Simulated assay, not measured.
Amino acid sequence: MSTPIDFTAGNYRYVPSVFQYSAGAEALPGFHVERVMFRKPVPLRQGFERIAAHIQAAGRPLTAFCACELRSPAPFDDAGFKAFNEIYVGTLSQWGIYDAATKANPVARSNVCPEIGGPPEPSFHAFSFVAAGDAAGPQFVISGSGEAREGAGSYAERIVRLNETTPDAMREKAVFVLGQMEKRMGAFGHGWDATTAVQAYTVHDLHSYMAEEIVSRGAARAGLTWHFNRPPVIGLDYEMDCRSVAVERAL
């Protein structure tokens, strides 16, 4: 896992990953993270407008935007996912966050697809930004990860137990994803004991491995929020993200 890089314009640091998101973001000393959830999904363009208004009303620059949670109508194929991501980072570039030249993106992100009652177009479910003021405990947001190994090649070539959803296969997928969460938190020097919330996204049963693989390692210390959603790319079956934030509110 890469060493965190300071994004001083936003008062946070991040773990580099791919062009569409970082592996995670953490507030710098003297700052904390605030998470805002929309009561109903807000379409991407309108969502960016509402996020900008909220951040600026809080007296913060748009570069303080550090994480978001998206909802899409259905999983993308590889080409569709790349096309969507290019549209998404366009706004981040306008805000002075995404560097098109280097493809550096400090913003953490999750993007999942509700199996029932999802939005008709890609939308925001929640976002996080960095605000001034120290807060007790670590302040970070870790990006969502599905069971795809990092590296070159298509998603199908990198997915753990592709097209398998037996209890044994789902356990292996979950263990891989839990490991990814631990690596990403570990890059900031944190672990499960620092989290204030952990979320799982799958439409498959997770009870057969929940106690041994999730609860036993401390990943459910603050409970586990299970969303009946699919990961954003066809072939993925299990995703997680986690965070440690001082303030959460709903709009």
Rank of each mutant, 00 (worst) to 15 (best):
G90D: 06
V33R: 10
R243E: 02
A169H: 09
Y238Q: 07
G189R: 02
R45D: 13
K40E: 09
A250G: 03
D99H: 12
G80S: 11
E212I: 05
S208A: 15
P41T: 08
K82M: 12
I97P: 02
G153D: 02
A53R: 09
P73R: 02
C113R: 04
N85P: 07
S128P: 00
P167Q: 03
G235M: 02
A135T: 04
S143H: 08
G137A: 05
R221E: 03
E248R: 03
V18K: 12
H125R: 13
G235K: 07
R35G: 03
Y14N: 09
G80E: 04
V175F: 01
A132V: 15
I234P: 04
R109L: 11
H125I: 05
A135C: 11
F140G: 02
I51F: 05
Y238A: 01
Y88H: 12
K82H: 14
G179M: 01
F65V: 04
T3N: 15
S93N: 14
S154D: 13
R39P: 06
A211N: 09
E157P: 06
A101N: 13
S216D: 14
R230V: 01
L44F: 05
G30S: 12
F188G: 05
Y14I: 09
P231I: 01
R184S: 08
C68S: 11
D193L: 02
A194L: 00
Y238D: 05
Q20H: 08
A100F: 05
G189D: 09
A79T: 11
M185H: 07
P119H: 01
V245M: 07
V33Q: 09
A222V: 13
Y238N: 04
Q199D: 07
T165E: 00
S17V: 01
G186T: 09
